[in-house]
Every structure is written in C-alpha cells, then in structure tokens.
C-alpha cells in the first residue's frame, strides 16, 4: 500500500515525467508486476468476450441471409421449443422479409432483413473498434510488464550476488515504463 505505485506519477526521473522503474525497491516492483498481470488477465477476458459477441452477431447475419432471404418457399421451417423439441413454422405471409431484432435492454424492433443486416454490421464494426483498442492497451501493458520483470530479475540477481548490500538500487537499466 505504498503511495507511488503508478508509473505515471510525475517525479524526477530520466524518462520525462515518469518514475524510472530501476529506482524502485523489489517489493514495489513485484507489487507492480502482480497488478499488471491482473490487468492483463482482465483485458484478455474482455477481449475473448467481445470476440464471442462478434461471432454471435455474425451468426445472426448468416441466419438472416440463409434462413430468411434465401429461403425457398417450400423449405420447411422449424422452431426450437427446447433444444430437442421442434415444431413446424410458417413465416408471416404479410411480412415475408422482416425480422425482430434485439436492440438491447429488453427492446425488440421489427426490421427488414436488409436493415437488420446493416444493424448487425454496425455492431460488428463497433466491436472491431473496441477490440483493436484493447489490443493496443494489451501491447503497451505487455511491454510494461516485460520491462518490470527484467528489472526485477536483475535486482534479485544483484541482491543474491552482492549479499543484499543495497547496491541494487543504483543499477542503471535504462528501461522506463
């Protein structure tokens, strides 16, 4: 619970407004390491979730194309009541090319297949943006983590060799977050 665990705190160090991680003591470094790995784990879970959501939207688009737009009039349609029980269905004759789209928070909107496809394309596009944002952050954090691990390893090694005479803090590594 130290007061300056952040690499972005302004303090006199070589890397312009950032703390030089080589000046930090070992306990703080390992704290930083734990926190960064936790953040990375969180980010990669989010990334996986977004990917899954994107896959679902793509499935919806494919279903619209194959199941509604390109359906032959005599192709039978079945509705799953449970995962193992289906009943035959007939599409609404008055609105043959409309679907109900879940737009979120419990609202469904009736859309033409074209509009629905556009809606899902927009969603996939939004997710792409979010995904690349996350990838950027992950890249930066990974580099940070690696830098910290390098310094930490060097310090532990120096301490073991020097019998813990405290000289480790003066080593220059040159790698700043």
């Amino acid at each position: 619970m130290s007061t300056q665990p952040s690499t972005s705190t302004s303090s006199g160090a070589s890397t312009g407004g950032q703390i030089d991680i080589t000046t930090l003591p070992i306990p703080q470094l390992s704290q930083l390491q734990t926190r960064l790995s936790q953040e990375l784990e969180h980010l990669s879970t989010s990334h996986a979730r977004l990917r899954a959501a994107q896959a679902r939207f793509r499935d919806c688009m494919r279903s619209i194309k194959d199941g509604v737009e390109n359906r032959k009039a005599d192709t039978p349609l079945l509705i799953p009541l449970t995962t193992s029980l289906y009943v035959p269905a007939t599409p609404n004759a008055k609105k043959p090319n409309t679907v109900l789209v879940d737009v979120g928070t419990g609202y469904f909107v009736e859309k033409s297949t074209k509009d629905a496809t556009r809606f899902y394309e927009g969603k996939v596009e939004d997710l792409n943006k979010n995904l690349s944002d996350i990838e950027k952050v992950v890249g930066v954090k990974n580099a940070d983590l690696r830098a910290i691990e390098d310094v930490l390893r060097a310090k532990v090694l120096a301490e073991q060799q020097g019998g813990g005479d405290g000289k480790a803090g003066q080593r220059k590594e040159g790698g700043g977050g």
């Binding site: 737009v103 979120g104 469904f108 909107v109 009736e110 859309k111």
Partner: peptide, 17 residues
C-alpha cells in the same frame, strides 16, 4: 438503444420484452 431508436422510421414496430 437510444441511437437505434433515433434512426428508426416513425411507423417502426417496437416490442418490449
């Protein structure tokens, strides 16, 4: 959802679950 509603036609059918 709000953005989606704003882009809808006046006579669009909206259902609530």
């Amino acid at each position: 959802v709000q953005k989606e509603f704003n882009g809808l036609d006046e006579d669009a059918d909206i259902y609530r679950l």
